[in-house]
Computed example of a mutant assay.
Amino acid sequence: MAVVSNDNQNSNAYGIDEAVKQAVNVSDAAQLENNFLTLMVAQIQNQDPTKPVDSTEFLNQFAAMSQVKSLENMASLSKSNLVLLDNLQTLTAAGLVGQEVKVATEQLELGEDAINGEINLEHAAGKLTLTLTDSNGVKKDIDLGSQAPGRVPFALDPQALGLAPGRYQVEVNSDSGEYPKVEVAGRVTQVRVSAEGPVLDVIGVGSVPFYNITEFGQTQTAGLL
Rank of each mutant, 00 (worst) to 15 (best):
E106D: 13
L128P: 05
N34Y: 04
A164Q: 15
Q218M: 15
S55R: 15
A13E: 13
N35I: 00
V202M: 07
N46Y: 12
F62D: 01
R167H: 09
N173I: 00
V103F: 12
G217T: 07
G217K: 13
L85P: 03
G186A: 07
T131A: 03
R187W: 02
P49D: 05
V103Y: 09
S66F: 09
Q159G: 01
T92A: 15
L39A: 01
I142H: 02
S80D: 13
V170E: 07
T129N: 02
E72L: 10
L130P: 08
E112M: 08
V205D: 00
E183V: 11
Q67N: 14
S27E: 02
E118C: 05
F62A: 04
V205M: 03
V152E: 09
L59T: 15
S176A: 12
N87R: 10
K79Q: 15
M74V: 10
N81M: 14
V20F: 06
L77H: 05
V68M: 08
A148F: 10
D134M: 04
N173Y: 00
R192N: 12
Y14T: 13
P52A: 08
L96I: 03
N73H: 12
A222H: 11
E215T: 10
I213H: 03
N120D: 14
I213Q: 07
V83I: 14
I142G: 08
V68H: 00
T92K: 14
L59S: 15
E72H: 11
D86P: 00
G206H: 09
Y211E: 13
L161N: 01
S55P: 07
A155N: 09
E112K: 14
V101S: 06
